[in-house]
Nucleic acid binder design. Structure first.
Lengths: 233, 233
DNA sequence: CGCAAATTAAAACGGTTGACTTAAATAATC
DNA sequence: GATTATTTAAGTCAACCGTTTTAATTTGCG
């Protein structure tokens, strides 16, 4: 009887999903979206798998384990899913930059890395994914991995290529400073957008203006002259 | 009352605590230090109060509730404690800057805000407190408060004064951009130091050099020209 | 249709959580 | 030394955790 009505209202056409999804795919997507939101808002450890299933419209308390195995795999599947969605835009931006001979442009490369995240926030109020990044980095990142660059997934190959170009552009920093500054700049990006999303109240910076400002901040921070200790404090 | 002098415990004086502590004060301190480390390393929600008591040397599973009431009060007590310890250094730095007429120096004001945190990390490997900040901001910050500035505690009065001076120095940004940039720069600072602490392996940037670099990054990011949307994307 | 596979529902598992209660032990005061 | 207050220890509680297991239901396909 209830073959038609699906509790998944968000999963109809949330993003650039080309092909229509089968039922199990829609269930998995609903679980990922619910988990993304709950994990991002409340923290990964503060949200149980039952709450995820329930928020995804499943009366089953077992849906996550059935579809994803365990909690950590659900988490990584969310990252895989989002970065996979980001990749076409990144590729397009990178190709356009290459066609215009602007592969060495600092701000352009930063946009390749961060604009997909920004557009997700701006176009769909999708701040949960960015908050999930912060929660993950704060408490669930495995030691010694750069997130999400170190996961050699096909969904991040363009991302990694852009970062490699950034490394060339900022070669004067040296390896250690480059990686340290890049991740720190990423933390700054996440912090700025999350703050912006938390202050919907009164007049706020327009989202596009915020993004331009953050790009300027990141570019300035990354290309700042390397600081060296002067001995006398 | 506490006229008798009790021998200072081995773990009771890692920092500049002037007066000797009574027994209950030592117990509370041990609980806060243990919680700081565990919360910072594993996340606030991932650590139970029994584990905190145990790590503090108490076989009691009730110590936190007895001394702090509940988990959240333990958390805020840690921030109160650390910021209180930071305050003398901040006051000294601010007075010195005032005596030298450098109250408008951007980097100097940033040092007033962040150097106590850096020294805690450099001199005592105290990265846990900084990681605790990140965990707290990611998952436990109440909505609409600037951490830790909005808590009008006497332990943060100098901190807030330095930030007010920073606001004057960066008045050209306007209120919204200033606060957004300041917290974002703080997130960058935390990210940089935590990364540095996670890479103890072989050659790493010397801590002082890292700090100088982060100060340069923050100064550059804060004083970057405000970005404005150009309309055509 | 019939039947097998896939999915959902529901119950149960051992374990841990924060919080509370009761006793024992220690410290402080008279 | 006796007595009172403070601190520690230990037990208990309902609720929730991630996971596993079993049954019911739905689905895909000949």
């Amino acid at each position: 009887m209830s073959t038609e009505n699906t509790p998944i209202d968000e999963a109809a056409d949330p993003m650039g999903l080309q092909q229509p999804l089968g039922k199990t795919e829609r269930t998995k997507l609903a679980l990922m979206l619910a988990a993304e939101r709950l994990f991002g808002d409340l923290g990964i450890d503060a949200v149980g798998l039952r709450a995820v299933s329930e928020a995804a419209g499943q009366k089953n308390n077992n849906a996550v384990q059935y579809h994803f195995g365990d909690k950590m795999n659900l988490l990584t599947s969310i990252f895989e899913f989002r970065e996979g969605l980001f990749q076409p835009l990144r590729q397009q931006m990178l190709e356009q930059a290459e066609a215009q001979g602007r592969l060495g442009d600092l701000r352009g490369l930063l946009r390749v890395c961060f604009e997909p995240n920004f557009r997700l926030y701006r176009d769909q109020q999708g701040i949960s994914y960015l908050k999930l990044h912060v929660a993950y980095l704060a408490t669930h990142r495995p030691r010694g991995v750069r997130h999400p660059v170190d996961y050699d997934s096909p969904n991040t190959v363009i991302f990694r290529r852009a970062i490699a170009l950034l490394g060339q552009r900022l070669a004067f920093l040296g390896e250690r400073r480059f990686w340290l500054r890049l991740e720190s700049a990423g933390a700054m990006f996440l912090s700025a957008l999350i703050q912006h999303s938390a202050r919907t109240e009164e007049r706020n910076l327009p989202a596009d203006e915020l993004f331009e400002d953050v790009i300027e901040m990141m570019a300035a921070a990354l290309s700042a002259p390397p600081g060296h200790h002067s001995g006398t404090d």
